[in-house]
């Protein structure tokens, strides 16, 4: 049950005995919910809808892990985090995992002691300009005023890009996406820059999306992925292989529609191992045999999640691009389930 206010006060008074440190998996199971850090609102990736339900691509990742570990895709506490608060939230144990458009970089992995468990979206920083500005390349942006949504690696990439091209610019850093849009739409800045996926999501919400173009240049590599704390390898494995299960399922053609059929046994041993009808992969993770079935039951495989939240049929309208399976010329390549 929820620790009462009084107990909280006791802990403050320093009287609560610190329990011996258990693994994150045990914590999550004991608690019965997964605490998942998401962004404060980026349509398509993580945003609460009109009835307060969180939905989006990153949210789907959280639900998949909850389904694998707890057997209930709704046993997730979504913790909205800003660019500033996300790392402390994870490091201090407030969240068990972070699924919040976080770029995998050397210093975050090594210096901040986090473990990126894979890439669920290959992104890159792009520029959006109003069509009537008459700009067709980012190289023509010398002297422009650029709205930046702060809180990711955006500021650094932007500084590098303009410096290496010997151009000047005026940065306008804005905390939230909604306010950055307001500035951009009012013409207080000429350009809006953030991850290309974010640009597409933002453009989709405009009254007149056709009046804005995303420039062809992608100025950075932004591999976005879920991350966990360093040191708890078992938990890291669970998050990593939940993501891999989603990717592999698409590669093997396992969808939410044909899952029941696949789970009853197929000729493909890898599908069987994924579905838990062959081998003991689930037990090795510390879960049961059918964990991956539950993961896929939440929102289908990677491709289905993509299409449902950010794909071309949604207002966001992102093409698969780099995020297609390796067989289709993309970068998604899950290690084998064996």
């Amino acid at each position: 049950m929820k620790t009462s206010f009084v107990l909280g006060a006791l802990a403050v008074a320093g009287l609560a005995a610190g329990a011996a440190y258990a693994g994150t998996l045990d914590d999550v199971k004991a608690r019965g919910t997964l605490n998942c850090g998401v962004s404060t609102g980026l349509v398509g990736f993580a945003a609460p809808n009109a009835s307060g339900e969180w939905e989006g691509f990153d949210v789907g990742m959280c639900r998949a892990v909850a389904a694998a570990v707890l057997g209930d895709a709704n046993a997730v506490e979504f913790v909205p985090t800003t660019g500033k608060t996300r790392f402390t939230a994870l490091a201090s144990g407030e969240v068990d995992m972070l699924a919040r458009n976080t770029t995998w970089t050397f210093s975050r992995d090594v210096d901040l002691k986090f473990e990126f468990t894979g890439v669920n979206y290959y992104d890159g920083q792009g520029f959006m300009v109003p069509s009537d500005l008459g700009v067709s390349s980012a190289k023509e942006l010398d002297g422009a005023t650029v709205c930046i949504q702060t809180g990711t690696t955006t500021e650094l990439n932007l500084a590098d890009f303009f410096r290496s091209n010997n151009m000047s610019y005026e940065p306008v850093p804005i905390e939230t996406n909604a306010e950055a849009q307001q500035q951009y739409l009012a013409g207080a800045c000429d350009v809006y820059t953030t991850d290309a996926s974010g640009l597409a999501a933002t453009r989709a919400t405009f009254e007149n999306p056709d009046a804005h173009v995303v420039l062809p240049e992608i100025i950075s590599k932004e591999p976005l992925g879920p991350l966990v704390r360093h040191g708890d390898n078992n938990w890291g494995d669970i998050v990593r292989w939940t993501l891999n299960a989603l990717i592999t399922a698409e590669e093997l053609g396992v969808t939410s529609a044909n899952m029941a059929e696949m789970a009853s046994g197929t000729n493909n041993p890898e599908i069987n191992r994924l579905m838990g009808t062959e081998g003991t992969l689930g037990e090795m993770l510390g879960l049961d045999a059918t964990w991956a079935q539950r993961v896929l039951a939440v929102g289908g495989n990677y491709g289905e999640m993509f299409e449902a939240n950010i794909g071309e049929s949604t207002p966001i309208g992102l093409a698969r691009g780099l995020n297609a399976q390796w067989k289709n010329g993309g970068l998604l390549y899950s290690p084998p389930f064996r």
């Binding site: 500033k84 790392f87 210096d111 901040l112 702060t150 809180g151 690696t153 500021e155 650094l156 850093p173």
Partner: peptide
């Protein structure tokens, strides 16, 4: 803001 964000040194 940005320094805290980039370095993570809260």
């Amino acid at each position: 803001g940005i320094t805290l964000n980039q370095t993570g040194r809260a």
